[in-house]
Write a protein that binds this DNA or RNA. Structure first.
Lengths: 268, 268
DNA sequence: ACCAATTTGTCCGTATGTATG
DNA sequence: TCATACATACGGACAAATTGG
């Protein structure tokens, strides 16, 4: 039951097992452990490659391979000047990683929609009690821009995605915020198509967004949830009206331009 | 608006911009593009490092750094003989990445619980119409083992986590399955503590699990959802009965032994 | 704004253990 | 069994970029 981190059982003799994983992995894991344990706080400098070479007693190439892994997992980042810092994995990066995986696994629109149906209404309901003024202002701004964008399907789809992301932010719940982000990313192309092909779609969308926003501002939990549910149902109806199949996998095509660049410097 | 993948705007002259990103990143991105576009199907061999050196015209070390990044993101894997294959990012790996991020961001129990309250009932409801026999059998087995584990808090917590994971599986919705996995991981230690400290907890848990299971087997959507909601509420009450604060961040301590090892070869 | 030291990105060559045929 | 191919790891090198005076 007490499996080691490499999946093996501990030996019961005098000596511990030998860790035969490659050196670059052990370098990465050692640094990861320091960060996860809190001994390296986010924003703390990791040191130069030469430092790490000295500390671990391995070659620089080995250190560099370890660093690549940690960089990829978001536990360390480079600031503008390429110095290494411990950092918190960014939500946007995780979200785009998740949506990439969902695309590769050929998740269907039905699956996406059902998950949205679970998360989005809850998000709106929580926003009623947790939304802070700045976020409400941001949502108001989003609505304003949406009303002016009725003729521009691409922009409208972008603003739609942003609206829902802001509701997630307003929920005051980062788990929900993170969970729903990939859904927004994956729905955006469909939202675009909908705005282009279904004449009433833009107006209905803006109407629903407005209702949700007003309910949130009024603190009306039931109303916010109900309008959000209606809105998500509406999206599905529009989707079906386009003659598309709910069991169709989300395409991988769109994903080309969502290769999220590393964001600017972390802390400090 | 048409930002390039490195965040800059396209130049409007004769020549395109020069890509200043380091070679190892471009190697990784080139391979990633092949996989995402479908030209490299999961399971397809990538070639040896020497092959990649020839194709890209860069040094071994550079290729290796690129490979580390892709390995970390789960897009490529090595089989037993260390040959490189394209692969689908594994859910378990993503889930543990997500829960790690949530821990580092010091997400609170309230946030976890609210998200669970959104996802888990939906998961149970969907299971009513989508559960396949094998999964139902697995759940039955889990229940059987749970009943025998009443005196063993650690095992019971493990079986609890497994039960909910199986419900996720039964939902026939991989988005929900993936979204809820990190929640299960993060709740497990609390579930353990609950089984240890609250005398009635094990019995109530098993009762609820049984009800949910029977409702799913009977295809009773309303009943399954209702019992799951009750179960999740119950968890919260138990948590508060322990005198713990919902606004307390999930501890980072537990995470030490959840450093999910790379699973065996991917497809084929 | 210039200079010297540091650091990263990249390359080359080589040795070693292991897996495949 | 043996030869080959391959991944891991090491040492050393140099140019370009960045830092810190």
């Amino acid at each position: 039951m007490a499996a080691l981190s490499d999946g093996t059982e501990p030996a019961d003799g005098l000596f511990g097992r030998i860790d035969h994983r490659p050196a670059y992995q052990r370098v990465a894991e050692a640094i990861e452990r320091e960060i996860m344990s809190g001994r390296l706080a986010p924003g703390a400098p990791i040191g130069t490659e030469a430092d790490l070479v000295r500390q671990f007693g391995v070659n620089r190439s080995t250190v560099r391979e370890g660093i690549r892994m940690l960089e990829q997992s978001g536990l360390i980042q480079r600031d503008g000047s390429r110095r290494l810092f411990a950092s918190l994995p960014r939500y946007t990066k995780l979200a785009s990683r998740i949506s990439r995986a969902l695309v590769l696994h050929q998740v269907t629109f039905r699956e996406l929609w059902e998950a949205t149906m679970a998360i989005e209404p809850m998000s709106a309901e929580l926003a009623c009690t947790h939304a802070r003024p700045e976020v409400l202002d941001a949502i108001a701004g989003n609505l304003e821009r949406s009303r002016r964008a009725v003729g521009d399907p691409a922009l409208l789809a972008e603003l739609d995605t942003e609206f829902h992301a802001l509701i997630g932010r307003a929920s005051g719940n980062r788990v929900i915020e993170l969970s729903r982000e990939p859904l927004g990313l994956l729905f955006q192309p469909t939202s675009h198509m909908l705005a282009e092909e279904v004449p009433v779609a833009p107006a209905r969308m803006i109407e629903a967004h407005t209702r949700v926003f007003e309910a949130i501002r009024a603190g009306d939990v039931a109303e916010a949830g109900a309008w959000m549910r209606r809105h998500v149902h509406d999206f599905r109806r529009g989707f079906e009206r386009l003659g598309k199949d709910l069991e169709q996998p989300v395409e991988r095509l769109f994903h080309d331009h969502v290769s999220a660049r590393t964001p600017p410097p972390a802390g400090r």
